[in-house]
Structures are given as structure tokens and as C-alpha cells.
Design a protein around this nucleic acid. Structure first.
Length: 486
RNA sequence: GCGGGUGUAGCUCAGUGGUAGAGCGUCACGUUGCCAACGUGAAUGUCGUGGGUUCGAAUCUCAUCACCCGCUCCA
């Protein structure tokens, strides 16, 4: 009789009530689109990230990790295309107040439109048609729309340089691809994984932590020989779907959604989204992760970017108005090429990018685990987290607060907590304590009772079945570690 | 950014100009002793924020912030 969350409001309330997720700066009235993880949420999210890392780095021979800085050389974002793409011009229809991108307005030829904020024409919208209400020429002056966060680097205001907070972790991987190759003895095909914060000035945030301006990504760039890219794309597609399933997300709430050709980013040869059926919007499927074939676009772009730096300095470090130099005719032998010494071949690798949202994933695990049940006429709320993800693995509870039971329980607690996250609770009735742990998603509860005093056994209570078995205290640690797979 | 809605205790909400409330939760004590038990008691409020009207504002009004729904947008 499990019931799931039907509305976003329920979920927000649940997250706050149990200390998973809070509105950022709440005592100041909140800050739009920013959220904080509470005690249980911080554990949950960290477990999600650790599970991902274990799956894509620890358990694989062909993957290594990376953790690079959020601030990077501004020209990285020129080469990646973000400086231009993320500086679109927006105008507003005076008649219906709808905002449109200038380069999306009808009548404008695509190649003709400048994407550069400072060189874009601020006139000549007189013959353009509002895509929303059909009014002609009723637009405000075009205004630049900065999708990347900017900040100043350098304490001395005169010398300060404008840098960007990264809008994706991916480019840090491309920028370090050469370093990793040269230092780790790894060879193509191989991948680099990274978890970290990224920032985008999304036009629309909303939907709780689903789309926020500050968010955390779990990204892989997998480098492979051109021609093998489609096979690797398929490999990662399967591997990533299996990860969500292995961690307990119900199959019927997951699906692949291939991108249409006109939806593909300019660099991508193919892209598929892993989607989860979230309980908001119209009960709609929403993206958890995108798995793209980025071809050799990024490495080739960075080869151009590397050769454009001098020009950028000469140009007064003006990132927007410093175009990249043309691609070298012999780009296949460039500094970011890979030499396959077994087959005596040199090439720019193709890249498969499985890019997952850590916050979205955490939200999906939370939603999918939630259940309301009837037990003997009483309502029971339970979060059926996979043990790997559960914030607390085991609660240790003395049946009563006397006859030495708390002392024994505390000893067990001190022993078990060295191996996994535990919680000790001796307050109020035992049934209430079990239900509290159900709400936190704790898979096991250990109870020290009267019989423990006689034969050194405790009960182990299972969250999902609510059944109890007796386990000898000297077997307890092994019993739990086996059950928890830890 | 547009339209609609909401904002009162940790949570869910009642309270339409006159003393700030309930249920749940939390805490203490007692009783009980394996699934939100019972009894007694207690704590908890910038009524989102700031201004205005009024003798008096949670309530009327203006502004603002945040969230939700629908548009728009989503490299």
C-alpha cells in the first residue's frame, strides 16, 4: 500500500521536516534558487557522490579522478563556446512582455546574427515578429543576458581581471587531459571523472533543487579512438542506467530519451538523457543525466584556444572580443593529440560525456524511496533508501533506560560507528524510536533488551519488513557489515 | 520577465480591525516494556520583511523578498 509523493509541496515539507534540504538564507527571507543540505541531506548527497565515484573510478581500470578549480583561464570559456553562447541578447515584446532571444527572432538569418554583446546591432528589430503575440517591431532595446557568473580576480581593483565561475566541470577535464595522460600512465581509451560545483544564470529556476543556479555535477569525459565512439557511447549509456537501478530507483520511473537532431548541441554527434519521473510539473519526466558524444570538438577547440592567448593579452584581456585563431591544418598532430604507439597512429580522441546532476540525482533517490504505509491501522512513513545511500546505517537503541542497557548499547555504538554511520537513541518508547528511524531511512535498528543481559544477544530489526532476529553481540558487526555490504 | 496563488510555532493549518491558537512533533517526570502507548507538566512566534492608514493591524493598503502553478526560457 505504498503511497508516493504527489506534489512538490509535500516533498519540500518532507525535506525540511526531516532535515534533508532547507531554503538557503531562510532567516533572511531566502535567496532565490539556492538551497542548503541539512544533517540527513548532507549524508545522503555525499553517499550519492561516493557511490558514483566508486562505480566510475574505484571499480574501473580505465578511469581516473580529478578535482580542478572552479575559476579557470577566461579563454577556456572562449574555446568551449560558452563566452559567446552564454552572452545572448534578449529583447522584450512591449505588447505581451514575452522575452525572446534576438537571434531567435524570425526573419533573422542565423549566420548573420552576432552573438557578441558589444558588437551586436541595437537597432533593426523593426521588422521582427514577436513569436508569442505576433506583434511586429514592438521590442525593447536588446540587452545582454549573462548566463555565466562573473567575478573579479585580484584584490587591487585596477588590476583585477574578469573571470567566470565555471558553468560546467567538463572543461576543467579537457584542460587537464594532457596532464593526466602524462602523469598517470593511462592510455586511450580512458576516462576522467570529476565532481564539483558549477554555476549558471538560468532564466527560469523553480522546481526546488531540480534547476538551481549553483549546482553540483558528476561528470565523466571518456576519451576514445574515433570510430569506436559509438560503441563507447552505448557502453556508458548502459552503465549509467544500471547505476541508478542498482541503487534502488524503480525501473518504471526511469527511461532514456534520445535527443532529436535539432535539439543536439553544436558539438554533439548524439545525446541521450536518463530521465526520472518526478512528481512535479505535470508528473513529467525530467533529465537526471545526459550522455553525449562530443566528438573531438572540445580538444580541437582548446588547441585553437591555446594559440590565442597572446592575442588575448594584446587585446587587453578582452575575452568577448578576442576571436580564436583559425584551426591549424595539421591539427591532428597538435598538442592535445594522442599517439597510439602500438598502432603507430596519432589522432585527437573522441569524447563520450556522461554528465549527471548530483542534486537532481539526490532528489530522485529521495522521492523514489519515500513511502507511506498502513501498519496495524497506523500510518508509517518510511524512506526505503538503498543501504549504500542511507544517511544512517544503523541505530542502536536500549529497550529501556535502566538495568545497564544504555551502557551496553553505548559500547556497541562506539564499536560500530568506526565502520559506518550510526545513531544512538535512548529517549522515549521503543516503537517511536523505530518509526523515527524509518523516517530517516535507517535500514537496521539494534535493540539491547532484557535478554541481552542474560545471553549477550541483541535484536536486529529490518526497516522494510519490520521483522527482528536475534544476533549474538560478538557476531553483530559482521552480520551488519554483510547486510550493508560495507 | 508576465499571469495566478501562497507566506501565522519545527511541520500541517485555523484565526476577516480589539489578549497569538489547535493538532502533530520536541523536552521533562511518572508508568509501561518491541513498533508513532498513557498520564502530568513544559518550552517554542521578527504572524516573510519594510513602510502607510488607524486609538489599535496577522487582518486594510503600498512596496519588497521567497516559494508553488502556468507561460517564456533552458548553451
Amino acid at each position: 500500500m505504498a503511497e508516493t509523493i504527489k506534489k512538490l509541496d509535500e516533498l519540500v515539507g518532507l525535506c525540511k521536516r526531516r532535515g534533508f534540504i532547507f531554503q538557503s538564507s531562510e532567516i533572511y527571507g531566502g535567496l532565490a534558487s539556492c538551497y542548503d543540505y541539512g544533517p540527513l541531506g548532507a549524508e545522503l548527497k555525499r553517499n550519492v557522490k561516493n557511490a558514483w565515484w566508486k562505480s566510475v573510478v574505484q571499480m574501473r581500470d580505465d578511469m581516473v579522478g580529478l578535482d580542478c578549480s572552479i575559476l579557470m583561464h577566461p579563454m577556456i570559456w572562449k574555446a568551449s563556446g560558452h563566452v559567446d553562447k552564454f552572452a545572448d541578447l534578449i529583447c522584450e515584446c512591449k505588447k505581451c512582455n514575452t522575452r525572446s532571444r534576438v537571434d531567435h527572432l524570425e526573419g533573422k538569418e542565423q549566420g548573420e546574427t552576432s552573438r557578441h554583446a558589444q558588437t551586436a546591432p541595437t537597432d533593426d528589430l523593426s521588422d521582427k515578429v514577436c513569436p508569442s503575440c505576433g506583434a511586429v517591431g514592438q521590442f525593447t532595446e536588446p540587452m545582454p543576458f549573462k548566463l555565466m557568473f562573473e567575478t573579479q580576480m585580484g584584490a587591487n581593483a585596477d588590476d583585477a581581471m574578469t573571470v567566470f565561475l565555471r558553468p560546467e566541470t567538463a572543461q576543467g577535464i579537457f584542460a587537464n587531459y594532457r596532464n593526466v595522460l602524462d602523469s598517470s600512465r593511462i592510455r586511450v581509451p580512458f576516462g576522467i571523472a570529476q565532481i564539483g560545483k558549477s554555476f549558471r544564470n538560468e532564466v527560469t529556476t523553480k522546481a526546488f533543487i531540480f534547476r538551481t543556479r549553483e549546482f553540483e555535477q558528476m561528470e565523466i569525459e571518456f576519451f576514445c579512438e574515433p570510430g569506436t565512439d559509438e560503441d563507447w557511447w552505448q557502453h556508458w549509456k548502459d552503465a549509467r542506467m544500471q547505476w541508478y537501478l542498482n541503487l534502488g530507483i524503480r525501473k518504471e520511473n526511469l527511461r532514456f530519451r534520445p535527443h532529436d537532431d535539432d535539439e543536439l548541441a553544436h558539438y554533439a554527434k548524439a545525446c541521450v538523457d536518463v530521465e526520472y519521473r518526478f512528481p512535479f510539473g505535470s508528473g513529467d519526466w525530467q533529465e537526471l543525466e545526459g550522455i553525449a558524444n562530443r566528438t573531438d570538438f572540445d580538444l580541437r577547440q582548446h588547441q585553437r584556444g591555446m594559440r590565442s592567448v597572446t592575442k588575448w593579452i594584446e587585446n587587453g584581456r578582452d575575452t568577448i572580443n578576442t576571436p580564436l585563431v583559425d584551426e591549424h591544418p595539421d591539427y591532428q598532430s597538435g598538442p592535445l593529440s594522442f599517439f597510439d604507439d602500438q598502432n603507430r597512429k596519432r589522432y585527437i580522441p573522441y569524447v563520450i560525456e556522461p554528465s549527471a546532476g548530483a542534486d537532481r540525482g539526490t532528489l530522485a533517490f529521495l522521492v523514489d524511496a519515500y513511502a507511506e504505509e498502513e501498519v496495524k491501522g497506523e500510518k508509517r512513513n518510511v524512506l526505503r533508501f538503498h543501504p549504500t545511500l542511507a544517511p544512517i546505517k544503523c541505530a542502536i537503541l536500549p529497550l529501556v533506560k535502566k538495568e545497564g542497557m544504555p551502557d551496553i548499547a553505548r559500547n556497541i555504538y562506539q564499536d560500530l560507528r568506526r565502520h559506518f554511520n550510526c545513531f544512538y537513541d535512548e529517549k522515549s518508547a521503543i516503537g517511536r524510536r523505530y518509526r523515527r528511524q524509518d523516517e530517516a531511512g535507517t535500514p537496521f535498528c539494534v535493540c539491547v533488551d532484557g535478554q541481552t543481559l542474560e545471553d549477550q544477544t541483541v535484536t536486529v530489526r529490518d526497516r522494510d519488513s519490520m521483522e527482528q532476529i536475534r544476533v549474538s553481540t560478538d557476531q553483530l558487526k559482521n552480520h551488519l557489515r554483510e547486510k550493508l555490504d560495507m
